[in-house]
Computed example of a mutant assay.
Amino acid sequence: MEQLTIFDFEKLYGKEHIPIAKAFWLDEQPITQPFRYKKMIEVLLYHHAGKYGQNAYLEALRTYNNDVYERFKETIHLLVFMTKESLGAIQAFSIGLPFSLEGFCIKDEYTTLFKDTEFGKVFRYERDLEKILTELISDFAWCYSLEGESFEVKNQAKMTNGTIDILISNENSAIVFELKKGTAKRADVFQVLDYSKSQELKGKRIERVLVAKRFEDDVLGLANDLSVSCISYSIGYNYSDPYFLFLVSRENHVEDNEIFSRYIDDGYEWGDVFDDQVVLGEFIHPYFNGSLKDFYISKIDELEREITAINTLTNKILVSAEGGNSCANGPSEN
């Protein structure tokens, strides 16, 4: 019989993670369906990413992907056949049912956060850079409050001239941030300048900041002419630690950007500095930094929906088969 017992789980993933197995009732009965196995390991991976980092995450991921097909080979083939024959790939995908072997495997979502380049790690998506930076500079909201200069931090602020990635503002001042995950271009400097001239910011004292992985000299020259502060970023990491360091370096100094310059100066004076880079803060992988309890509940909800869909599909097949048998046998005689 194809199954996963709590002893199998302990052997594969370690005794210390038994509480996660118990949360999926593995101590009461073995798992006999691969989709329940998958949901349990997704919770385990979420836990590993947030507590141990990349190495533990990838080890558990490889263990599961190597084990699930060998352990539930016949069940997987049956489920895939039922799904394809009765629903088709498109409908199966729309209701969340696996329709291939790959659907029972788990994709690596940890190492996809960055791309490795000749200049170091670069965010794969600017939305992740924006989310992390927004959280790290949220102290702008209170760090000048004692001087009567409290600020509000917003991301994706819609203006007449476009959508500003991060806007830090109060009644008198505004700092406009434009973010680029890779190398900054001259057009990016003009973009932050254009955003800063939006009608909604009229009457405020404006400062402009462009954040990117790196800057060429011609871009820095243009930024100086247009009073745009340029900040490069880099990522510090350890494969056995869940925390990443977000480091920034000031590539130019714009006297007009008094508030932002003071913020960065404070970082260099009071923060940790390595090779002329100041540690702006640390962060956990943004795909795994939520509540484990909430993630577990979401996976239980998904599991219940999948079980309901599989049961409905099975009943549909059984009814269809019984109908076919009745037709084959002809009408019954009284």
Results as ranks from 00 to 15, higher is better:
103 G>H: 13
89 A>T: 14
117 T>Q: 02
9 F>D: 07
182 G>E: 07
311 N>K: 13
121 K>E: 07
40 M>C: 12
298 S>H: 09
209 V>H: 04
331 P>C: 00
105 C>I: 01
260 F>L: 11
133 L>H: 06
1 M>P: 06
21 A>Q: 06
151 F>D: 01
42 E>T: 11
235 I>E: 05
5 T>S: 15
258 E>F: 14
79 L>Q: 15
2 E>V: 04
88 G>F: 04
270 W>R: 13
313 L>Y: 13
186 R>H: 08
49 A>P: 06
166 I>N: 06
322 E>G: 05
149 E>Q: 11
220 L>E: 02
39 K>Y: 01
288 F>V: 03
127 R>G: 05
193 L>F: 15
172 N>M: 13
278 V>S: 08
166 I>K: 01
208 R>K: 12
141 A>W: 05
246 F>E: 01
57 Y>E: 00
232 S>D: 02
7 F>T: 02
310 I>T: 04
201 L>D: 01
54 Q>M: 11
227 S>D: 08
65 N>F: 00
295 F>E: 09
196 S>Y: 00
106 I>D: 10
25 W>L: 10
216 E>H: 13
38 K>H: 06
128 D>Y: 11
214 R>N: 06
204 K>W: 00
96 G>L: 09
31 I>A: 15
287 Y>G: 15
152 E>R: 13
96 G>P: 11
182 G>F: 05
192 V>C: 10
109 E>P: 03
309 A>G: 03
78 L>Q: 13
127 R>F: 15
211 V>G: 06
9 F>N: 01
165 D>A: 04
303 L>G: 03
327 C>N: 07
3 Q>L: 09
56 A>E: 06
286 P>A: 11
65 N>H: 06
320 S>Q: 09
99 F>H: 15
305 R>K: 15
163 T>S: 06
31 I>R: 05
135 E>Q: 12
52 Y>D: 04
86 S>H: 05
31 I>C: 14
307 I>A: 14
319 V>F: 00
325 N>D: 05
7 F>R: 14
230 C>D: 03
123 F>E: 03
286 P>R: 14
244 F>N: 08
197 K>F: 12
97 L>C: 04
104 F>A: 02
128 D>E: 15
167 L>V: 08
26 L>A: 07
171 E>C: 03
332 S>L: 08
199 Q>Y: 15
127 R>A: 12
298 S>Y: 07
304 E>Y: 07
136 L>V: 14
170 N>L: 06
248 V>K: 00
73 K>F: 13
326 S>N: 12
174 A>Q: 02
277 Q>F: 14
155 N>C: 05
221 G>Q: 11
178 E>Y: 07
121 K>N: 05
206 I>L: 14
63 T>R: 13
116 D>I: 05
184 A>L: 05
316 K>A: 11
46 Y>T: 07
286 P>Y: 12
14 G>M: 11
83 T>V: 15
47 H>K: 14
1 M>S: 14
231 I>A: 04
267 G>D: 01
292 L>W: 01
177 F>G: 02
230 C>W: 03
99 F>E: 04
316 K>N: 14
32 T>A: 09
250 R>F: 02
59 E>I: 03
85 E>K: 03
254 V>H: 08
8 D>R: 09
197 K>L: 09
284 I>M: 10
